[in-house]
Design a protein around this nucleic acid. Structure first.
Length: 603
DNA sequence: GTAGGGTTAG
């Protein structure tokens, strides 16, 4: 119920000195009422009161009212109120900008900022934090830099909130260097500025830097990480495939009471899937009470990458039956699942259902999945026709045509490999890889003249292919392998010779597959060896990863699944790796298990 | 006075 706001108001206004006091008190109560509005009915009632009292021209009162509409997501009403204001102040402008951002209209916020600057109202730190956020959402680096320049001109370069939003903006716009420059200049950092920087690293493929910064945070501050920070750190672990660090961070999440936070739980689901532990992902996922589309998608993608297409599709069914609408990312997972499990017809059905059943227009990423799916089963002509039918920008098409190129090579289709390479080279995308793969395709077809001419063309044009790399994590140590460079890993040659032996055994057991990858069916469940599809693009020319229980991860052939014999071979490999592994501090694991570790030393 | 920053799936 509304408070009896303006009882005896006319009387109060009639008497002079008393009137000011009561008027102030009434404003105060009205402000409280406006801030308390939780629904449209109470807001409309408060709005009527404002009109009745003749306060519609009062800037502060209208600002309160406007924020009420913003909170209720009624941005059009908020904007109309703003338009009717005789003298909007900096708060009015900033509130409206924030309202448009909340309503998913960041461009409108930037437009308002432009209009505000033209007028006589000067922006303050609140305004800049809001405008920078709009740039961040749009990943608009150009405008973001201009706004940053104005931040300096207006003297807000040391405002903590503005700085944090600038770090975030640079991070989201993929300029980590600039993000770090801003971070370095902050005199007194807080948990938000630390998180912004950690996130900027984590989201830009600099997971190791993210973990190191987190370690610095733990050393330098007395603050405990909160759910924002932990979600980012887990994201960094996921991108690096760092299972042990991920588990330790999971421990930190539990100890700090954030395991019931859905965003953190989703990050953990994703982390375990990317580290090859889908069982753990499932356990964490099942604890989420009402999973939204994001945790569902995370599981769908995780299962798909794991080669468990059926599980992936079952999760999709379950999700839609529960009335949760899939989005474009969900369909990337679904198509990926079909692609990696040979479910071509189901995949095509899902592609067709996207638009008419779910209102999602397939984009280049979806078509890339479909090209991959058709290509894997040898339906190269269909894949090529799809690729040709899509009009794409060079950067968007790189993955599409790169996928077609890889898959053409796998099936020895020189004609399509040539067309795909041509597209990539002409669009100046993945040029070195295109040359190498085309050259390898020629080699596979025995067309050595073409191979030699490709190599000389590469030399003439100064094209050099960076060697691909993969890495393994053995407990808390990471070993990096470069393609064609056995010497970079201690005892790497032994690992390679064992892998060769493994391949021989697999051939004896009747593996199916081409020269780059082996596909072995009939997984023996009791081996409990898990396949990881992680970094598959990076590893197109090299090896994939397989994770073996006890936290030992070993590099093996791409797309490999295990039979009993192979598992025996792996045990030999794992013994070698185990011997190389130096246990720095066994207590760390004990600490993790009993949940009492401080985690300060881990990152 | 009223308005501002960081987290999850590809």
């Amino acid at each position: 119920m509304n408070k009896p706001l303006y009882r005896n108001l006319h009387f109060a206004l009639a008497s002079s000195s008393l009137s000011r006091q009561i008027k102030l008190s009434c404003f105060h109560t009205l402000a409280e009422q406006l801030q308390d509005c939780k629904d449209s009915v109470s807001l409309s009632s408060a709005h009527t009161t404002v009109l009745k009292l003749g306060l519609s021209n009062d800037t502060v009162t209208t600002n309160h009212l406007m924020n009420g509409y913003v909170r209720l997501q009624r941005i059009d009403d908020a904007h109309q109120l703003f338009d009717e204001m005789p003298q909007p102040n900096v708060v009015s402008w900033t509130s409206l900008m924030a309202g448009h951002i909340n309503a998913g209209q960041p461009k409108k916020a930037l437009w308002l900022f432009g209009s505000m600057v033209v007028g006589l109202v000067l922006p303050n730190a609140f305004t800049f934090a809001t405008v920078v956020k709009a740039c961040s959402i749009l990943a608009d680096l150009r405008t973001g830099k201009k706004v940053h320049a104005q931040v300096e001109v207006f003297g807000f370069g040391y405002d903590l909130v503005v700085c944090s939003s600038l770090i975030d903006m640079y991070g989201k716009s993929n300029d980590v260097g600039e993000a770090h420059r801003v971070f370095d200049l902050i005199p007194q950092r807080n948990i938000v500025s630390w998180t912004s920087m950690i996130t900027a690293y984590a989201q830009n493929g600099r997971g190791q830097d993210a973990l190191e910064l987190f370690r610095e945070f733990n050393y330098l501050t007395l603050d405990r990480p909160n759910h924002f920070m932990l979600a980012s750190v887990i994201n960094a672990c996921a991108s690096l495939g760092r299972l042990v660090t991920g588990k330790i961070t999971h421990g930190a999440v539990i100890r700090n009471g954030y395991d019931s936070n859905d965003v953190v739980a989703t990050a953990i689901v994703d982390m375990y899937a990317k580290c090859g532990c889908l069982d753990y992902s499932t356990k964490v996922f099942q604890k989420i009470h009402n999973p939204s589309v994001i945790p569902y998608t995370s599981m769908i993608v995780g299962a798909a990458k794991y080669g468990l297409g059926k599980l992936s599709l079952e999760l999709f069914e379950e999700m839609t039956e529960r009335g949760i609408s899939p989005n474009d990312v969900t369909f990337i997972g679904v198509l990926h699942a079909c692609s990696h499990s040979g479910l071509v017809d189901q995949g095509l059905e899902h592609l067709n259902s996207m638009h008419h059943k779910h209102g999602i227009v397939p984009d280049t990423k979806h078509y890339t999945c479909v090209v991959d799916m058709l290509g894997r089963t040898g339906r190269l002509d269909e894949a090529y026709n799809i690729a040709k039918s899509i009009q794409v920008k060079p950067d968007e098409g790189a993955l599409l045509w790169g996928t077609l190129l890889s898959t053409s090579r796998l099936h020895g289709r020189v004609d399509i490999a040539f067309e795909a390479s041509k597209w990539l080279i002409e669009s100046n995308q993945q040029v070195a890889a295109a040359y190498v793969i085309l050259s390898n395709t020629y080699a596979l077809a025995g067309r050595w003249e073409n191979v030699h001419s490709m190599r000389s063309e590469m030399k003439r044009n100064g094209v050099a292919k960076e060697p691909g790399c993969s890495w393994v994590e053995i407990k808390d140590c990471t070993y990096v392998f470069y393609a064609g460079d056995v010497s970079s890993c201690p005892r790497g040659s032994e690992v390679v010779s064992l892998l060769k032996e493994l391949e021989v055994r697999m051939k004896e057991r009747g593996y199916v597959g081409g020269s780059t990858g082996l596909v072995f069916v009939d997984v023996e469940e009791e081996t409990k060896v898990e396949m990881v599809g992680l970094h598959s693009e990076r590893l197109a020319l090299g090896f994939g990863l397989i994770s073996i229980p006890k936290g030992v991860t070993i590099r093996v052939m791409k797309n490999l699944r295990m039979c009993r014999d192979c598992h025996e071979a792996f045990k030999v490999i794992s013994d070698i790796v185990e011997r190389d592994f130096v246990v720095r501090d066994v207590n760390r694991f004990h600490h993790f298990k009993d949940g009492s570790c401080t985690c300060r030393d881990f990152w």
